[in-house]
Nucleic acid binder design. Structure first.
Length: 800
DNA sequence: AGCACGCCGACT
DNA sequence: GTCGGCGTGCTC
């Protein structure tokens, strides 16, 4: 009998998406356990793998042994292993991909391949290796040496080594330790030559503070010296310099003022009590917390988490990436201090790893993070909160294409704990489930400050045009901005960029500059003064003449934030403007700095894209303007009305959150559209009813489930043939109530020279669908190796 | 995925 | 007769 580990190898391919057995070598017998990463030989290669199980079996002498363990403690708990299995099945992706998705990027293996010289005598070989013992494969390949080296491999004068590398780098800090007691120190100071002023400073620092250990950096700053005197003192044995591991702390040096629970309104209290009851009774209940902006949802999160912590359990709080602002983090940090770990994409991969480790080591009991934080390695979870549950960012757009909400509900069901979905504008799906009592609805109709919701004016921009107003600003908006300027109050302007990139078009013939590889128009970039493709990165110069008709009337269309800023400066020269978009927030911390400046009243107007729609909470914002409310209304996506309503509601909530009442101006070319009208009235329920009718009529979620199948290849005929075969196959297999739409070219019909076609399945109950889809993937496996890509998105969120 | 093996055409 | 193209199949 031998000890055997079942291992999922790090090779994302269908044929090897199953466990492989490996012998556990004797010295690792009690070390290897499920959830650890190991290094194993796999064919001629060496790869990383995840142990999913260990077992004892009869010795069949055919198993290769595990080469090395990468962890001493499992990185995946049994819960997360099971979750990965489920995820892979649900999203039709590979198990390894699911496991990788649950871990910080630093735990993903890096592979290296290089040659080792075995024959020391051969002169030519030595020359090839430039005298070194090893030669990097990539380097050899780049220099065209592979063929020559092959000979040496064959006759055993060299060999190929496959190596798995850990990416983890521990952050080190240089510490200075004091090796002498105060008396000795005094003597040492007297012994120092008079000229050694800097060394004296260092010793006096230690004598005055009584410290015995300090980072070198801090010592240099505080004692006002450079590295040299410290080195000297270390040489004579008075000090010792030690490199020590430290955890990166992205919030280092910040002081969080401790806050305590705020008093709750009746509605908040009731909601809190119900959630706490579910926590107490270990009930896997899903709550939909529907609260208007400013109704105090966050305070409910904080107080229920407090309860979870008191019970000795842990909590996960998911927040959309863009609202993971310092303001948001601060609220959690100041209530729970060091118990909070933050996981978000602006952190470096090292920082993310360290935060993840704090969770794993049970130093943190609350995690606040974006989508992937739903996989936080807690083992005694007490509650999961998803704020702004309607946000599309919770759906991962590449494999594994999971939705964080589904993962949360899975974990909650297993752990018998509640999930809280919070939103001012719940998704149709969630609200429908709440109405059917699948979720428990908790409503917060009132704002905490008892303020009325801001008044929303809708301006018909077609009228403005008729009145010869060609600027981006309606007369009323301009009027109100001037008024705020005079009163010293602040304005937020939202430019809805989605579906509205700036492109170059010929005014004479209508020619639009397009990407030669992708079926999409090129975007104009002012910074580089070039045309760039969003999808493949293709770049070209801005044309002077129309390539089609030679006309010189070729110009930019679309409205960028820069352009708006320019015209705003002309109209309101005295206004101080802060512009926030991808360009001005690219560098780390820029986002925060700009907001801070706005908070400090260093500007009157904040102009930005979607990223300013959330989380801004400044007392002096009394006017919000939406420059173009409807640009995304006509995107080919059934959720476009819902998204428009959500965005408008969201930004409206930025105004008048404190004492001053707010006003909102919404500019639109289609002011009569229901999503705008209901947003104007702050009428979520009205919008919900209307939108549900549309969804019913056009057979969309939540009445039908969707699955999107996409095929792409360089040869258009191959794509059409394949997608047709798939559609026909599904038609023959699925229930007759299921609708199969298409195949049709995708919205962007070509990316990177690959043609893209898709078909959509709409269905109600289809228990066999998953199996059928899997068999389709298997069937086209060989073609997938020849450049054909089949992507399956179960319950897609974005249809483009 | 990646790599070896193996079977055919185009050359020294 | 050999080099190298790519199709096929396997990886504990």
């Amino acid at each position: 009998m031998v000890n055997v580990a079942e291992v999922i190898v790090d090779v994302p391919a269908m044929q090897v998406d199953r466990p492989f057995d490996y012998l556990i070598p004797e010295e690792l017998t009690d070390v290897v356990t499920a959830g650890m990463r190991v290094i194993v030989p796999f064919g001629p290669r060496t790869v990383q793998g995840f142990v999913i199980q260990t077992k004892v079996t009869p010795d069949n002498h055919k198993l290769k042994p595990i080469r090395e363990v990468m962890d001493l403690l499992p990185v995946l708990s049994t819960e997360l292993l099971a979750l990965g299995d489920w995820l892979a099945k649900e999203t039709l992706s590979f198990k390894v991909s699911a496991y990788q998705a649950m871990l910080p990027a630093l735990l993903r293996a890096k592979y290296e391949k290089y040659f080792v010289r075995l024959d020391e005598e051969d002169a030519e070989l030595e020359a090839l290796f430039e005298g070194y013992e090893t030669l990097d494969w990539k380097k050899a390949e780049a220099n065209g040496l592979l063929k020559v080296i092959q000979k040496y491999l064959k006759n055993g004068q060299a060999e190929v080594i496959y190596q798995v590398k850990n990416k983890i780098t521990k952050k080190k800090a240089r510490y200075v330790h004091l090796k002498k007691d105060p008396v000795q120190l005094e003597e040492a100071l007297l012994d120092l030559p008079k000229s050694a002023k800097a060394q004296q400073k260092v010793l006096r620092y230690f004598m005055q503070t009584g410290e015995t250990k300090i980072t070198q950096k801090a010592l240099q700053e505080r004692a006002g010296v450079t590295t040299e005197p410290i080195k000297k003192l270390a040489q004579v044995g008075i000090l010792k310099i030690v490199d020590q591991e430290v955890a990166r702390d992205p919030y280092q040096g910040r002081v969080f003022e401790k806050t305590t629970a705020l008093p709750l309104l009746d509605g908040q209290k009731q909601a809190c009590d119900q959630i706490i009851e579910a926590v107490e009774q270990n009930r896997a209940e899903t709550f939909l917390l529907h609260g208007v902006t400013g109704s105090g949802k966050t305070e409910i999160y904080l107080q229920t988490i407090e309860h979870v912590l008191k019970k000795g359990q842990e909590a996960i709080v998911l927040v959309p990436e863009i609202s993971l602002t310092p303001q948001m983090v601060n609220r959690f940090k100041s209530r729970f201090g060091d118990e909070v770990a933050v996981l978000h994409s602006a952190l470096s991969s090292g920082e993310k790893y360290d935060e993840w480790r704090r969770i794993e080591k049970k130093e943190a009991h609350v995690v606040v993070g974006a989508r992937s934080a739903v996989f936080a390695p807690f083992e005694n979870l007490g509650m999961i909160i998803i704020d702004e549950e309607h946000e599309a960012t919770y759906k991962q757009e590449d494999n594994p294409r999971y939705h964080a909400r589904d993962v949360a509900i899975w974990r909650a069901a297993r752990a018998n704990i509640p999930v809280v979905l919070g939103s001012a504008t719940p998704s149709m799906e969630s609200f429908a489930r709440a109405k059917k009592n699948v979720y428990t609805l908790l409503s917060l109709p009132d704002r905490v400050n008892q303020q009325d919701l801001p008044e929303v004016h809708v301006v018909d921009m077609r009228d403005e045009l008729r009145q010869q107003n060609r600027t981006e600003f309606s007369r009323i908006l301009l009027e109100k901005m001037k008024d705020r300027l005079a009163k010293g109050e602040q304005t937020v302007l939202l430019l809805n960029k989605r579906g509205y990139a700036s492109f170059v078009m010929c005014r004479d013939c209508g020619y639009v500059v397009e990407c030669p590889n992708c079926d999409i128009s090129l975007t104009y970039h002012q910074a580089t003064h070039k045309m760039k493709c969003h999808y493949c990165g293709h770049e070209e110069a801005v044309p002077n003449h129309c390539p089609s008709c030679e006309s010189e009337h070729i110009r930019y269309f679309g409205t960028g934030t820069q352009k708006v800023e320019e015209s705003l400066t002309k109209l309101l020269p005295e206004a101080r403007i802060i512009r926030m978009d991808v360009d001005t927030t690219r560098t780390k911390g820029a986002h925060e700095k700009l907001l801070q400046r706005f908070a400090n009243h260093e500007a009157d107007i904040l102009l930005g894209t979607q990223m300013i729609a959330k989380g801004l909470d400044f007392p002096d914002i009394t006017l919000v303007g939406v420059l173009n409310a409807d640009t995304m209304l006509f995107l080919p996506d059934f959720r476009s009305a819902e998204r428009t309503f959500q965005l408008l509601t969201q930004v409206s909530g930025r105004a008048g959150r404190h004492e001053l009442t707010g006003e909102v101006i919404v500019q639109s070319y289609t002011p009569e559209h229901y999503s705008i009208q209901y947003a104007k009235k702050h009428d979520y329920l009205g919008f919900y009813e209307h939108e549900m009718q549309m969804r019913y009529r056009y057979q969309y979620p939540p009445f039908y489930y969707l699955t999107l199948i996409g095929v792409s290849h360089e040869d258009e005929m191959t794509v059409i043939r394949t997608i047709r075969q798939i559609a026909d196959y599904l038609r023959s297999k699925l229930h007759q109530n299921a609708l199969i739409l298409g195949p049709v070219p995708s919205t962007i019909s070509r990316i990177k020279n690959k043609y893209r076609y898709q078909c959509m399945i709409k269905y109600k109950v289809e228990p066999e669908l998953q199996a059928e889809l899997k068999s389709i993937l298997e069937h086209y496996q060989k073609d997938q190796q020849k450049g054909l890509t089949i992507s399956i998105d179960v319950q897609p969120y974005v249809l483009m």
